[in-house]
Amino acid sequence: MWGGRNGTARPTWAAKGKRILDMAMTPETPLRLDSNLDRDRPVQITVDGEPIQAYEGESIAAALMAAGRRTFRHLEPGGHPRGIFCGMGICYDCLVMVAGQDHVRACMTLVQPGMQVTTLRE
């Protein structure tokens, strides 16, 4: 598995991790936080042809993350996966294609109804 250089992890660390996981985490923990937010304007977009539910005001990056998609593109050669890194529009790692225009920053671009997003392989 993910053995470090010396093979195994110390049990104390594993135990700590497990305790925290048991405490709070189920895979169903919702990714959209709505404790203090009303999302009342749903917007349908497609990502690589697959329909995804988003909300008005969301960035493409947030909509993809909330849909459980963290990998936005693959860089060739090697197919290196990339996603959100700086989250503030400077690193140009979260680039996607929107309606035929490539190199759109997913973190800086808000979703529009019917928007067609394509993840890049380049």
């Binding site: 963290r70 990998t71 936005f72 996966p81 990339r82 996603g83 959100i84 890194f85 700086c86 989250g87 503030m88 973190c107």
Partner: peptide, 8 residues
């Protein structure tokens, strides 16, 4: 993906 700046 999943490694990001704290600010992100």
């Amino acid at each position: 993906p999943g490694v990001m700046m704290g600010g992100a």
